[in-house]
Measured scan of single mutants.
Amino acid sequence: AQVHVDGVTYDFDNPEEAEKFAREMAKRKGGTVEVKNDQWHVE
């Protein structure tokens, strides 16, 4: 699973880890999390 944050792509073998990371980053940035094509996007 991939997580996109500020133009940087992070690869995770485990989708749950990807989701956890995406939500944590969004919380830190005060942003939102979107899922597109099985990829997490932190805005």
Score class of each variant (00 low, 15 high):
residue 1 A to N: 12
residue 1 A to I: 12
residue 2 Q to F: 08
residue 2 Q to T: 12
residue 3 V to I: 03
residue 3 V to L: 02
residue 3 V to N: 00
residue 4 H to I: 13
residue 5 V to G: 01
residue 5 V to P: 00
residue 5 V to I: 12
residue 5 V to F: 09
residue 5 V to D: 03
residue 6 D to E: 07
residue 6 D to V: 03
residue 6 D to L: 05
residue 6 D to Q: 06
residue 7 G to H: 04
residue 7 G to E: 03
residue 7 G to W: 02
residue 7 G to I: 02
residue 8 V to H: 10
residue 8 V to Q: 09
residue 8 V to C: 14
residue 8 V to F: 11
residue 8 V to L: 10
residue 8 V to G: 04
residue 9 T to I: 14
residue 9 T to Q: 09
residue 9 T to W: 12
residue 9 T to S: 06
residue 10 Y to L: 04
residue 10 Y to I: 06
residue 10 Y to D: 01
residue 10 Y to A: 01
residue 10 Y to K: 01
residue 11 D to K: 13
residue 11 D to V: 14
residue 11 D to M: 14
residue 11 D to W: 14
residue 11 D to Y: 15
residue 12 F to Y: 02
residue 12 F to D: 00
residue 12 F to M: 04
residue 12 F to N: 00
residue 13 D to P: 11
residue 14 N to A: 07
residue 14 N to P: 00
residue 14 N to K: 09
residue 15 P to Y: 10
residue 15 P to G: 08
residue 15 P to R: 13
residue 15 P to D: 10
residue 16 E to L: 11
residue 16 E to S: 11
residue 16 E to T: 09
residue 16 E to A: 12
residue 17 E to N: 05
residue 17 E to D: 12
residue 17 E to S: 08
residue 17 E to R: 05
residue 18 A to T: 00
residue 19 E to V: 05
residue 19 E to Q: 06
residue 19 E to F: 05
residue 19 E to K: 05
residue 19 E to P: 00
residue 19 E to W: 06
residue 20 K to Q: 12
residue 20 K to H: 10
residue 20 K to M: 12
residue 20 K to T: 10
residue 20 K to A: 13
residue 20 K to Y: 10
residue 21 F to Q: 01
residue 21 F to I: 01
residue 22 A to I: 02
residue 22 A to N: 01
residue 22 A to T: 00
residue 22 A to E: 04
residue 22 A to Q: 01
residue 23 R to H: 13
residue 24 E to W: 10
residue 24 E to T: 04
residue 24 E to G: 02
residue 24 E to L: 08
residue 26 A to N: 02
residue 27 K to N: 12
residue 27 K to D: 14
residue 28 R to Y: 13
residue 28 R to W: 13
residue 28 R to E: 14
residue 28 R to K: 14
residue 29 K to F: 15
residue 29 K to Y: 15
residue 29 K to I: 15
residue 29 K to V: 15
residue 30 G to T: 04
residue 30 G to L: 03
residue 30 G to A: 04
residue 30 G to D: 08
residue 30 G to N: 10
residue 31 G to Y: 14
residue 31 G to S: 07
residue 31 G to D: 06
residue 32 T to Y: 14
residue 32 T to R: 11
residue 32 T to K: 12
residue 32 T to F: 12
residue 33 V to F: 07
residue 33 V to H: 04
residue 33 V to D: 03
residue 33 V to Y: 07
residue 33 V to W: 05
residue 34 E to F: 15
residue 34 E to H: 15
residue 34 E to I: 15
residue 34 E to W: 15
residue 34 E to N: 13
residue 35 V to W: 15
residue 35 V to H: 13
residue 36 K to E: 08
residue 36 K to M: 09
residue 36 K to A: 08
residue 36 K to T: 08
residue 36 K to V: 13
residue 37 N to P: 03
residue 37 N to E: 09
residue 37 N to Q: 09
residue 37 N to T: 05
residue 38 D to Q: 11
residue 38 D to H: 13
residue 38 D to P: 04
residue 38 D to R: 09
residue 39 Q to W: 04
residue 39 Q to I: 15
residue 39 Q to H: 11
residue 40 W to R: 02
residue 40 W to H: 05
residue 40 W to A: 04
residue 40 W to V: 05
residue 41 H to S: 07
residue 41 H to C: 14
residue 41 H to Y: 15
residue 41 H to E: 05
residue 41 H to I: 13
residue 41 H to D: 04
residue 41 H to F: 15
residue 42 V to H: 03
residue 42 V to A: 03
residue 42 V to S: 03
residue 42 V to K: 04
residue 43 E to M: 15
residue 43 E to T: 15
residue 43 E to K: 15
residue 43 E to W: 14
residue 43 E to Q: 14
